[in-house]
Every structure is written in C-alpha cells, then in structure tokens.
Amino acid sequence: MRGFEYVRATDVGSAVALVSGDPGASYLAGGTTQLDLMLKDAVVPQGLLVDIGRLPLRGIATDGDVLRVGALTTMEELAADPVVAERVPFVSEALLAGASTQLRNMATIGGNLLQRTRCRYFRDIAVTDCNKRTPGSGCAAVTGAARMHAILGASAHCIALHASDLCVPLRALDAEVRVEGAAGQRTIAFADLHVMPGERPDVETVLRHGEMISEVLVPLLPAGTRSGYLKVRDRVSYEFALTSAAAALSIEDGVITLARLALGGVGTVPWRATEAERVLVGAPATARTFLAAAEAAIQDPFTVPGTEFKVELAKRTIVRVLRTVSGEQS
C-alpha cells in the first residue's frame, strides 16, 4: 500500500505533470467527492493528492454568447452569477437544487462534472460485485436494493447513476470543456465527455490520466428562450434526483422553434433527449406535443424492480417541465 501524500499545486503545468507522472495520483479540488471516496469510503485507494484548489482557474467571464467558467469556480459562485440568472436560468436552478449551501461553497464546477456515482454498491467496499470498481466482478445493484439508479444507458453490467444536476442543463446547452494535459490542451464537447458504461463501467469519461478540466464553456441561450429545471425527489430539498429534466424552449406563434431537453436521475451519463427535441421543434406547444416528446425521450429503458417507476416518472417530469417552461397554465 502506498501512503497518502498531499501537495499543494501553485501552477497548472506542474500539477498536470505531477499527476500525469504518477498512476496513483489524483487531483483534489473541492474535495466533496474525492475525500469522501478516498478517506471515508476507501473506494479510491490512497495515493498522492495534488491540491489544485488555489490555481487561478476560478471566475466567470462572458465571451460573446459563451460563458467561460473557470473549473474551480464553486457551485454557489456560478449559481449567483447574474448572466447565468438572465441567460441560462436553468443552470442556476439546477445548481441550487443540488447539495446544500455548505457543499456548494466547496464543490467546484469542474469537480461537479467528474463527480462519481452515489450507487451504494459502488461506495461500499464490502460489496465485491461492482464492475465500476473491479471490472468483470459483476453488479450487485442490479439484483439489489436499487432506487437511486439509472434506467437509460444502463445494463446488467452497471446501473450506476450520474447524479449531477448541473450536468443536465449543460448537456442540454452543448457545453464544452477545456482540458489541460501532459500533451497540451484540448476541447471536449460535453456530449463526448462522459462515456456510457457498456462493458467497462470503470471508464467514466474520455479524460486521460492526468488531464484536468480547466474551463467549462457554456453557450448562452438566445434572447427570448425560456428555460427551467425540474427535480423530482422524495424530500423537498437536499436529495439527489429520482428524475429531473432541464428544458429550454423558444416558441413563436405557438410553435416551438428551439428545443433543448436533457434528463437527470435516469442516465448513467447526463442524458440528452435528442429524439424528444426532434418531436418538439416545429410542433405546437401543446400538452399533446409534450406527451409525444416524453414518449420519444425514454427509449429502451433498462429497469430493475426498484427503478421501474422511473420510466413513467421521467416522462411525467418531462411533460411538467415543458408545460412550465412553455408557460402553459396547468
């Protein structure tokens, strides 16, 4: 067993070099996932922890129709940003629907994108069958007490949910992430960042070891586009989503001219409802259209006894968010 080492990085380059050069090293930003998994649950082996918390990757700037968000910006900071509130309000709504103020003051935007699943079978090392931790070992959740689990992009290999709220509107917006690595910079489309589990649930993103998200580019919605985020959960607050939906609509003369829809609480990755968007665009903004969109959104779900209800709940969540965003009075 290697020991636990902590170093505080003072510039991006050396941080990247340090983690890239050590297979057991990882970044420490807000810490709300990493320390939990490493110190408390022991899911991630203890190794070198490179604290990037003080790197100059914090702040929000508007660049034309794109918001450039430093990866170390906290959830609270982004939620409070006036441009976000005006141009992409569902991003702010999603942020404030997640976690608690304390955690939002700690957790970073970059870290939020890379948060690990809350699946208790993944997080309990007493469970031996977890393909995400040990490829090929099986999935105890599939036959276990599943509820907070995925129904889209899931299979008997893994039903672990991507539980981020923030990622749902970012997926709807076609955000991009800037990444620093040993081989230099690259930009990754949000759609490409997260990888469906398939037969390798341990591979969660396209990031290579040592790559660090430095910036998230958030396209702003055209003026006149309305957006909303609806999160359905047992408690009123402070709970991961059972289902959620982020929607943005432009409606002209009763006809939908722009539609963006993404789902949370249901996917192994942040889920874009592309088929549903096709149904919406060009159609009248009516309950009937929204229902058709919801039907189109949930295709081939993989359910287990504890998650079957999510199929219908997700559809109703979609209908409700679309009705709300379209301004239709219920």
């Binding site: 208790r120 079978y121 907070m148 047992d234 408690r235 009123v236 991961f240």
Partner: peptide, 15 residues
C-alpha cells in the same frame, strides 16, 4: 444498502 445520510432519508428543514 443505504447506510448514509445521503441515502437514508430523514426529514430536512424544508420538509
């Protein structure tokens, strides 16, 4: 399978 406060839900203030 839910032995944490994130998974075992007790009422929060907003409830």
């Amino acid at each position: 399978a839910n032995a944490t406060f994130g998974d075992y839900l007790i009422p929060v203030n907003a409830d």
